[in-house]
Write a protein that binds this DNA or RNA. Structure first.
Lengths: 338, 338
DNA sequence: TAGTTTTTCCAAAACGTTTCGGATTTTGCG
DNA sequence: CGCAAAATCCGAAACGTTTTGGAAAAACTA
């Protein structure tokens, strides 16, 4: 592999000059620059980023730390779309992204900052991490620039991008209320997700503003899992036959809920209205098509990457909140009379 | 950031000894090893992989070069599942994966080997690349270990993993033949994909073995795109009303075909049987559910990663061919009598 | 005890870059 | 022409590791 030294020798100049020529410094004459460039091309030279990173103390690499890359999470395009957004922005810069994964054995062995420091990443994007994850406290303490997705933590080194979860959930529930529903349940995620808390708040706000009493036992956790949601929904609708509508904190759970309803012989939307959250790919393909709160996952990734690069260039950490949109499809209908 | 030198100073030994202690060499006494380990932990040391990679001439990094990370390709879980498989295997090793993307502006600027050499990746996995991609010739010429997905090129430095495309396609067509279909069309991908050629061959073999004449004008290319397939199918079924079944080289195209059929007032499977290829997530969710040839995309990625790491450890490049499986759902039925 | 082996340690070179400080050459100007 | 200024170049140090080839110390052996 040809190095800067080879070029220097071939061109009869010093390595300093080669380096400065290649990097476009002004203190090298056009003639020698041309010669160096030619030789570099001819020798098929490519710079060694390792060496460069070592001396410059920046790797031009960002870490992408996601949790949703498991075999079982394939139904959930969320992670992939976010990744695509990140990748899309990064592709336009001179950074590369290196993929870390939580929930691997590696995580147990290495701490967050170890991971990052070993690879000398310049910054990190974190997605899908739970609020009780040991990594999270490290993020705040660490001095590595970082942007979080859907986790509202901020400092001068960490920013985040999220969506207006409270408002999104509120719109969903208001939609059900407008359809005449008064017996509304909620399938939430789990206690270790900020979005769960926020969506629950949206649920409360909508109900309270409409003066509809809230039944606490109608609010259950499905752990953001299709299977868990199905089981919980089965119990729920078995016990409480008054419920005419349910708001789910994720589309995946909504699918589980619909399965449970089918098993119980309840029709969607005739007997029970279902609304989801996320607008995953499947939402528009299942039957009946799922009414849901759409969030632009691609853009979340894109904005996160954009913010991180901004931060690496000296700007300060920000907060970006994207709008959600209620997409009404076929899984919600007016409440039955009587 | 604490370095090996800091530890050496604190422990009153040389950097050599620290290095050898940390890396488990035998020529350092247990007493000093213990002392060094303690100090390392206390100083919160993590090794600088950049420096290590530089001197060891290996980065413990593999490149993952995929093409399907675009905003529009989100429907196609193929890429994501392959990536998940790769990630899953790599997570068990001490390698990390760095994400490159083709079809970016970067590709036009940098050649394949430039990309790889700059980041000094130890090996590469390539997915979704066309046969006329300039990168491909480079792969063969380059001396970087590499495993290709669905591209049958092999040398001592490059292996590949694929599925039995000929046989898979054959099974799909035989399924149609067994249902009594004789007027069978095919929606192929494009001429720059090996799988297209192989699936076409499977189509031919099945038809010829059954002594069913092949209508060349019933074989069209949909470019692996839903929209393109829809347009082509519209023309096709408009012109040739004899066709009772169509085999599609991808599920995404099958979706497009089904849209076209709907537009034309043709029912699936009553009027026309449709079979796809891939078994993407949507296949089982669309209505009617798609009969298709399933390939284990996760495993493809997993095997690819496994082979690459094997190669990096001195073993030679291999060829892995995974089995496919015909999944009969609702989009195929017996041909209408009369 | 003296010699030999084994154990434990270390100095220095190397990896491929960037950059600091200064040296050399060329140019401009009166 | 002579001198100052500008343009062009370079040596050497630095980044944080690993590794080579021995040296020093400790342990064993006869």
């Amino acid at each position: 592999m040809t190095t800067i030294k080879d070029i220097a020798k071939a061109a009869g100049v010093s390595v300093t000059t080669v380096s400065r020529a290649l990097n476009g410094y002004s203190d090298v004459s056009e003639k020698t620059r041309k010669k160096i460039m030619d030789i570099a091309k001819q020798l098929n030279y490519s710079p060694n980023t390792l060496a460069r990173s070592l001396v410059m103390n920046k790797s031009k690499t960002i870490g992408l730390l996601v949790s949703g890359m498991t075999r079982s999470a394939v139904k959930d395009n969320f992670t992939f779309e976010v990744m695509t957004g990140v990748n899309d922005y990064i592709a336009k810069t001179d950074y590369d992204v290196i993929l870390f994964n939580t929930n691997s054995t590696k995580q147990r062995e290495k701490t967050y900052s170890q991971l990052c420091r070993e690879r000398r990443v310049d910054g990190v994007i974190l997605q899908g991490i739970k609020t009780d994850d040991p990594y999270l406290t490290e993020v705040v303490e660490s001095d590595i620039p970082c942007v979080l997705i859907d986790i509202p933590i901020q400092s001068d080194r960490v920013g985040y991008v999220t969506t207006d979860n409270v408002h999104g959930a509120k719109k969903a529930v208001q939609h059900l209320l407008e359809l005449g529903h008064r017996h509304i349940a909620m399938m939430n995620g789990h206690d270790y997700a900020f979005v769960s808390k926020q969506r629950l708040q949206g649920f409360y706000e909508a109900m309270e503003e409409a003066n509809v009493p809230i039944q606490k036992e109608w609010i259950v956790n499905g752990d953001f899992s299709e299977e868990m949601a199905e089981a919980r929904a089965y119990e729920l609708f078995m016990k409480h036959q008054h419920i005419t509508a349910i708001f789910c904190a994720s589309d995946l759970m909504a699918l589980g809920v619909m399965k449970a309803l089918k098993q119980l012989g309840l029709r969607v939307p005739e007997d029970v209205s279902v609304v989801g959250y996320d607008d995953i790919l499947l939402a528009s393909y299942v039957s009946p098509a799922l009414t849901t709160v759409a969030q632009n996952k691609f853009q979340m990734g894109y904005e996160a990457a954009s913010m991180l690069i901004d931060m690496l260039e000296g700007n300060e950490a920000k907060v970006v909140t994207l709008r959600t949109q209620l997409v009404v499809r076929e899984s919600t209908a007016e409440v039955k009379k009587g």
